[in-house]
Structures are given as C-alpha cells and as structure tokens.
C-alpha cells in the first residue's frame, strides 16, 4: 500500500512517522509538501504528523488546515482513504472539519510530555483492529493544546456511534470525557493526541504499543 506523509512548515514528527511507516510496511512513504495540490496516485494511507505547523499561529492547526494540499486530503478522506492525524495532525483535522470538536489549551496550562496509559475504546476500526476492546496501552503524549472540547450533544453522538477510539486512563489535559482520539463517521479518519509512531520498537522506544496501529492498517487497508 502506498502511503503519504504531509509535511507542513513547522512539522517536527514527519520523519518519525515516515520511519514508523517504513519499518512496519517495508516501503518508505512519499513526503508531500503542504503547498502541493496532489497526492500520489493510489495512496491508501495519508498521515498528518505532529509538530507546530505555522508556529501554531491563530490556533493550533488553523493555518495548516487551510493549506493547498488539504483539499486533496479532504477529497481522499471522502473516497475512503485512511487518514491518520497525530497531535498537530489531529488539530489540523478538526480545524479542517474532517473531525468534530476542537483542541484547546491544556486545562493545567502546562505542556504535557510523558508516557500515558490509554484505554482502547473501539477495537473495530482499521486503525485499532490489532488491539482488544478495553485494552490498556501506553503511548507518549507531547502537547500544549490537547484538551478536546465539543458540546455535550456532539460528545454523546460520538460516544453513541463508538467513535471514541482512545481514552486517557486518567486525566492528562482536561479533555472532555478523557477523549484522546476520535474517528469520523465512516471510520477511515482517526485523529489522536498521543504519538503511536514513538512506540514502534521496544529497544529504542521502551515499548511497542504503537506498532499494532500500523500493522492493523497495513493488513486492512491493502
């Protein structure tokens, strides 16, 4: 499967996700500059990496979400191509309207950078099929604006449709209902604040709980 990583000015996890995709699939992704307007033909997975696109100006992800490439990303998402937004990538997906809600400044105002335990809430998506429902995994977070916010009706709707993919086991940033990651209605777009690409191999990362997300993707999104 062909994969692509979108690189924004200020992305800083683009190489980490590229290494993770290459390690798990054996094929390096195509790095696509944000000012481009086309994705590689036949791309099956698009990753929006972590970082600080446009220096988080205006709001985290706000300018990145209006980048030229995002029209192609939105069109691909509508065709069913898997789109994975990690950290700043999640912020961009909400700002682009591909996922509901918004990511606000952490409730404690502090930048949180540590390993956090997560609960897998939905183990049936293309991203989470290698996990068990209710399984506890450990993935690092590193963010200032990870406080997920949406109105109560939206939160109830997400929960009712099983679109909360991951939840923090304990409060990390003040997120509504401890939400760490959500899916779109079709299940082909996932945004999450934790960094699975930083937990790929135990020797280097101290764990490999992130690896199964990519293994699942490459198996299902052939």
């Amino acid at each position: 499967m062909k994969t692509a990583v979108i690189v924004f000015p200020g992305s800083n996890c683009d190489r980490d996700i590229a290494v993770a995709l290459r390690d798990v699939s054996g094929t390096a992704p195509t790095m696509v500059w944000h000012a481009d307007t086309a994705l590689p033909d036949g791309v099956g997975l698009i990753a929006l990496p972590g970082g600080f696109s446009y220096g988080d100006y205006l709001r985290s992800g706000a300018i990145g979400a209006r980048s030229p490439i995002m029209a192609a990303v939105t069109a691909a998402a509508e065709r069913g191509v898997a789109v994975l937004g990690i950290c700043n990538g999640f912020q961009i997906l909400t700002e682009a309207g591909l996922l509901p809600g918004a990511l606000m400044r952490n409730a404690g105002l502090d930048f949180v950078c540590r390993d956090v335990p997560l609960t897998v809430e939905n183990a049936q998506s293309a991203f989470t099929s290698r996990y068990g429902a209710g399984e506890r995994i450990v993935i690092p977070v590193a963010h200032h604006d990870g406080n997920y916010a949406a109105d109560e009706a939206t939160l109830d709707w997400l929960e009712g449709e099983g679109r909360v993919a991951f939840r923090y086991a304990t409060s990390v940033n003040g997120s509504a209902r401890n939400i760490a990651g959500i899916l779109n209605a079709a299940g082909n777009v996932l945004g999450l604040m934790p960094h699975p690409e930083r937990r790929i191999e135990t020797a280097a990362h101290g764990g490999n709980d992130g690896r199964r997300m990519f293994e699942g993707l490459f198996e299902l999104v052939a």
Partner: peptide, 9 residues
C-alpha cells in the same frame, strides 16, 4: 467563519 474564529469554541 472560515478562518479567524473557530465557531466550535
């Protein structure tokens, strides 16, 4: 609506 404010919040 499209950029300056995020009307979700």
């Amino acid at each position: 609506r499209k950029l300056l404010a995020n009307t979700v919040i």
